[in-house]
């Protein structure tokens, strides 16, 4: 028995595979007298005792939040009601109704070519595996690509229960932006606004490039798989001054409501106590609240259940608004 045979047998036995006892004894006897095999066994044991990668807890929590929301939305979808389907369940994606647009600047185009070339080269390197993958499309995998399970709706206009669904929001830092639609080719120069972490209603949350159209800071172009989507900053005015909605919780998937910053205790009464006190009304007539002894110039809160058409309409929680620069 040579080194290869001995170590392959020991490797299989290590994985709990059935191995002929006689062959295994021969393999062990060989390894006991062979420095190379001894080294192999040492690494084999070390790999087995090394800690395996662990999924970050925040990732597991995020998956729980997303699938929990999908589960709740799916349950609501079983009960016919009048409100529109939650955007988080829409499988008709924003890009589906939009012609694809080619808008990247030349530098971005070059980058795309480079990335594509890299991907192709890698796929070429992976040729055998990719081929196998094509063969291994099982019945279960077919099912994965087939119809959604019961309770999950395909159409955006399906009836659904519950309070109004959140508009399709994204957040940049803490600022909140609401979808306006797909972008035509931007006519102005896009200025990088940073990265927005969002699913864009496509199921996969990841960081995406976002841009301002020139000097305009009221609109945000977010680059998805099918092109740009335009988002508009959610604002209201008070005394002619514009305030923007902010959120403590990053809005990483459509179907999430902006949340009150954690520095404020959640109000327990309609007058805002214990965190807030009434401070008048904004230009639309919505009552605003400030921290005790505070000033609206520093920002204000708005209670739930604002009137239809209000920029916070439908949000079941309190919202916080800060003056725009």
């Amino acid at each position: 028995m040579d080194c290869m045979q001995a170590c392959e047998i020991i490797s299989a036995a290590h994985d709990g595979e059935p191995v002929d006892a006689g062959l295994l004894a021969q393999a062990r006897a060989h390894a006991d007298a062979c420095a190379d095999c001894a080294l192999f066994l040492r690494v084999l044991d070390r790999i087995a005792s090394a800690p395996d990668p662990e999924a970050p807890p925040e990732l597991v929590a995020r998956i729980g939040e997303i699938t929990g929301q999908m589960s709740r939305d799916a349950r609501h979808a079983d009960a016919p009601r009048e409100a529109p389907a939650p955007s988080s369940l829409r499988t008709r994606r924003p890009f589906d109704w939009v012609p694809r647009i080619a808008i990247l600047a030349s530098a971005a185009a070059v980058l795309l070519v480079v990335v594509s070339a890299g991907g192709l080269a890698l796929l070429s390197r992976m040729g055998q595996t990719a081929q196998e993958a094509a063969v291994t499309e099982s019945a279960e995998d077919e099912a994965l690509r087939a119809a959604p399970p019961a309770g999950v709706t395909e159409e955006a206009d399906s009836p659904v229960a519950g309070a109004a669904a959140p508009p399709d929001y994204v957040s940049l830092d803490e600022s909140v932006w609401m979808i306006e639609g797909a972008a035509d080719t931007p006519t102005s120069t896009l200025v990088s606004a940073g990265l927005v972490r969002t699913s864009l209603g496509e199921g996969l949350t990841r960081s995406r490039n976002a841009f301002y159209p020139g000097d305009d800071r009221s609109a945000l172009y977010v680059l998805g798989d099918g092109g740009y989507l335009v988002f508009r900053r959610v604002t209201r005015t008070l005394g002619g001054v514009e305030y923007g909605l902010v959120t403590e919780t990053p809005l990483e998937a459509f179907g999430m409501w902006p949340s009150l910053p954690g520095r404020f205790a959640a109000p327990v009464t309609a007058d805002g106590s214990p965190a807030f006190e009434p401070a008048g009304r904004d230009d639309r007539g919505a009552e605003v609240f400030v921290p005790l002894g505070g000033d609206t110039a520093d920002g204000f809160a708005v209670a739930p259940d604002t009137a239809p058409g209000d920029p916070a309409a439908g949000n079941p929680g309190w919202t916080w608004w800060e003056p725009l620069p």
């Binding site: 170590c7 299989a12 690494v43």
Partner: peptide
């Protein structure tokens, strides 16, 4: 599968731990 798992381990062994006395033949 058996041979791929073994080949993977063999490659890892060669990378992660240098044989005493330097490079050797056989497995590595």
């Amino acid at each position: 599968v058996k041979s791929r798992v073994f080949r993977a381990r063999r490659a890892l062994a060669a990378l992660l731990l240098e044989p005493e006395g330097g490079a050797s033949d056989g497995l590595h």
